[in-house]
């Protein structure tokens, strides 16, 4: 009796743990992107980065339990002017050689509402940029698309997709990016927009 209760406990706990799927955000198609926009009085700058990796544990029935981490290779950041890009990645600004990754780690997700397939929530996480980690809070949208991985891979893999969208501002001074300097051309506020699709292979 005791043994069977113990076995049942293990079965139940392993089942409960398995209900959150692990979604991999390394995207071979290069669709995943993190966009940034700065609007200073004299100059507007925008660009994207797309060398993204990371995993997110997501359970559509319990989105509040979502955990995970997303990283972006700093070198993958692009703008439309090559000289500006060299300056941006250089030691004076992002120092991409010394700080090769920008990382966001989710600590807490609060579900707010479900709109159709989209689950709108608020995420609290740690953003590490230029070696400095700060807590940020951002509105986030999860869209779980069951069984659509095959359409995206030409039938090679079967599984689910998870689309994550988040928009939030950060202050570059808080991350030690030339605090208070060049504000007429490079805005203090950097608006970040994450558009990511993760895959969970099931067969």
């Amino acid at each position: 009796m005791k043994k069977s209760s113990l076995a049942l406990f293990f079965v139940l706990t392993s089942w409960a743990g398995a209900s959150a799927d692990v979604f991999d955000f390394k995207d071979a198609k290069g669709v995943n992107n993190i966009a940034f926009m700065l609007d200073a009085p004299l100059e507007s700058i925008s660009g994207t980065g797309n060398d993204i990796s990371g995993t997110v544990n997501f359970d559509p029935k319990n989105p509040s339990a979502t955990t995970g981490s997303i990283s972006l290779k700093t070198e993958s950041l692009m703008v439309t002017n090559s000289v500006m890009r060299d300056h941006m990645l250089g030691a004076g600004w992002l120092d991409a050689k010394k700080h090769p990754e920008i990382t966001f780690t989710a600590k807490k997700v609060t579900t707010t509402q479900q709109e159709g397939k989209a689950i709108k929530a608020t995420v609290v996480g740690d953003l590490t940029l230029k070696g400095i980690t700060k807590e940020v809070t951002a509105p986030i949208t999860f869209t779980h698309i069951p069984g659509k991985l095959a359409d995206r891979t030409g039938g090679k893999m079967k599984g689910d997709l998870l689309v994550i969208r988040a928009d939030f501002p950060i202050n570059r001074s808080e991350f030690g990016i030339k605090p208070g300097e060049n504000t007429e051309k490079v805005a203090e506020t950097i608006n970040i927009r994450m558009s990511l699709a993760g895959a969970c292979v099931k067969e």
Binding site: K29, V31, M78, T80, I145, K148, L161
Partner: peptide, 12 residues
């Protein structure tokens, strides 16, 4: 735009 995920992405 990615048709399946409806993500807008930029190529250079």
């Amino acid at each position: 735009k990615d048709e399946i995920t409806e993500i807008d992405f930029i190529t250079y």
